[in-house]
Write a protein that binds this DNA or RNA. Structure first.
Lengths: 230, 230, 230, 230
DNA sequence: AATGAATGAGGATTCATTCAT
DNA sequence: TATGAATGAATCCTCATTCAT
């Protein structure tokens, strides 16, 4: 009878969530290591503190709502110190998002694998993986959407993901008849957009009524049918 | 050889588009007429001026970028007057969006018809219709996304659209075996989310590379396959 | 034995002088009267309060040292109110100086009369008059010099005084042989520059050692000789 | 028919002039050489680099506009290094000006000679010399005026020049009847102030309309007449 | 002696909002 | 009802200055 239907927890990202700070530290800390001299290490430490704090603030307050004052307070540093490391809010935000994106790419790449496999099973596994990813990144998404909507720069910067995606699945596309490739590319893009958005609605904004099982089942089915899998 | 491939014009909504003002005026004017006494009529007039001005400003400046000062300047009224009609920015925004939503519902309702028809042709026609709608509403979308992302209230308020949508297609759902209904509902929701988002990317943010024909063709195909049409 | 030698009091303008506030109020108040409606009157009142306060601050702190915060504190109004009346510090300063300039012109005009008279007596009287004027305006001079030195705009705006001066004495120039006029014009300009600067040194910066009598006597003598008077 | 009338080039000192850097380097270098140990030499080198850079910045940005950051950037040294050599902006400015003053004194001393000669010719030559000096120092003058106007300390420090001047011409004063000496001293001071200021207007601020010839001719005439020369 | 990093303090603006008219 | 004027609260940003290295 399958696993119990666990309603998708809409993730308590509603501006106040502080759950992920631990992992976040890991994120940016990872970047700092191996720099060399002591001074550089210290600078990198401060920098990563800012990034971590920024992430917390962006998650809690959204993009527009985040002020540099809040970030520096959260990072427990002087406001002026911020400007030593970043020119403005947008710059830190880019950094914060970049850390996420590293993982993003990783997951997208797996899509290629799943498509190559060409089985419902593989698709299902990938979509499940996607939910995990969405859950991890959910808290920052509102800010990302907000930034993209309010600042054309960000829109240009973050959106290309979908374009690059089509390159990620280049391998898979080669398995498709040459004539069908352009359409297939668009088809995959659409589905990715769909899943992306769907998980955003489901996880971040909590506006999905059904259970997680149903969501996964239907999503898999839609994708497979659209891609003529099985 | 089919119609010529016209690349989707990414719609010059890039903060400055003023194309729709005419229609907009019609929108809010429609609401004000026939209220009753003279005083009320005047008040309603001012109110609709604010709404129209607000729309212009939201389109040009985005949600966060729109200040009450800009709105009242655009409306050529005093800043204080604004507060006689609306408590804050969010309130006007709700009104502005509401005017769009009237139409929104209208279009969604047609989805039910298309689904009932159950033909690729009907689906294709509806999707085409959707692109028109998207084109009309494109300019306000960034603000809407921004507002939703930054203000949880808006998220709750605007998202339910997808829930209500499932009610709109209730009629269609009755034609589906009772056991399949829950999944079918989710399936349609997903596709709507997909189309919605797709047109946002394609029209508003102009990040779609293919032509309009391709977009429509693939979208129709994905939807039909996912819904077992044909 | 002549009048007693009274050493020129270098005027306690050394950032802290508050002596002239009374007169100042008179200055700007004069401007406000006769506006008409009550609202306008109130606005004008605030405006003149800002100007008066600005003058005090400029006198005490110099141009660079004067901040908008200091001005609004002195005026006992909100900082934002300032921006309702002036775009920036430079704008108020212009206004403050303008009030002085009204008088300035008046005094320069008398130079023409003195020159026309062509007697040592008339020159002496005018120079004496000039010292009074200098004394009255001494406190603002440092700021003026500072503003002129630091902001080319001000230099352009305030300096032309010397050019306009040559127009003020046009009448006198007509009494001079046509051939000598250009040189005579320059000659007068030089002397005015000299007196101007001299009184600035003597009164404002207090770096003159001699007594007031001596100063007047020598100045008169230099001027008369240079102009072939007597 | 005299030399051709060359309009006084108002000297492109308008914050951006960089003409004099060569000479300037010479200035401060002269001071640093011959100090002794290697360390001291290095220190002196840095010190002179700061002074040179400061001069450039003061010329370009004015006194208030010059920040320590700008100076150290121009000198290509660390901001903190500045504080090893000077306590603050005022201190470097003093040095910068002092370098000028060495020359200043030199020129003033020649005034004594000219006065002793007591001929129109000698006066004329000295005044011409003065214009050269003014031209050389023009670029720094705005800052000097600004500093004097904003900081009473500077006023006290730079002004005394006029007092010391009277000592420079002590020799000449001895040739004057004892009774007339006090007045003569003041008379010369006045004329020097006049010339000083005149060249400032003419060269630095470019507000003089006439040609250089006229300026020199009239200035010479005024001085000679005022001093009963010829 | 020189530097990189960090800080504290202060100044300019802008905005939403409230009064008295 | 509509307005002009005023306000309080934030925010951004820059600068002079110090400290550990």
């Amino acid at each position: 009878m399958g696993p119990p239907v666990r309603t998708l927890q809409p993730l308590p990202v509603e501006r106040g969530n502080i759950l992920l700070s631990e992992r976040r530290t890991a994120y940016s800390a990872r970047v700092t290591t191996g720099t060399g001299s002591l001074r550089e290490a210290q600078k990198a430490l401060t920098r990563s503190r800012i990034i971590d704090a920024a992430r917390v603030v962006f998650e809690q307050q959204g993009y527009a709502g985040a002020s540099i004052g809040l970030i520096t307070t959260e990072a427990a540093i002087n406001r002026a110190t911020f400007y030593l490391h970043f020119p403005d809010k947008a710059a830190v935000f880019r950094e914060v998002v970049a850390l996420d994106r590293m993982h993003t790419d990783e997951y997208w790449r797996e899509l290629n694998t799943a498509l190559m496999a060409g089985t419902r099973e593989a698709m299902s596994r990938w979509i499940l993986r996607l939910t995990h990813w969405a859950r991890d990144n959910a808290s920052l998404m509102p800010s990302k959407h907000e930034a993209m909507a309010s600042d054309p720069e960000f829109a240009k910067e973050f959106q290309p993901r979908y374009d690059r995606l089509s390159e990620e699945i280049a391998q898979f596309l080669l398995t498709v008849p040459a004539d069908d490739r352009p359409d297939m590319k668009v088809r995959v893009q659409m589905l990715v957009v769909m899943l992306d958005q769907m998980f955003f609605h489901a996880l971040v904004q909590g506006v999905w009524t059904g259970g997680e099982d149903q969501l996964l089942r239907v999503a898999t089915d839609v994708c497979c049918k659209a891609l003529d899998i099985e």
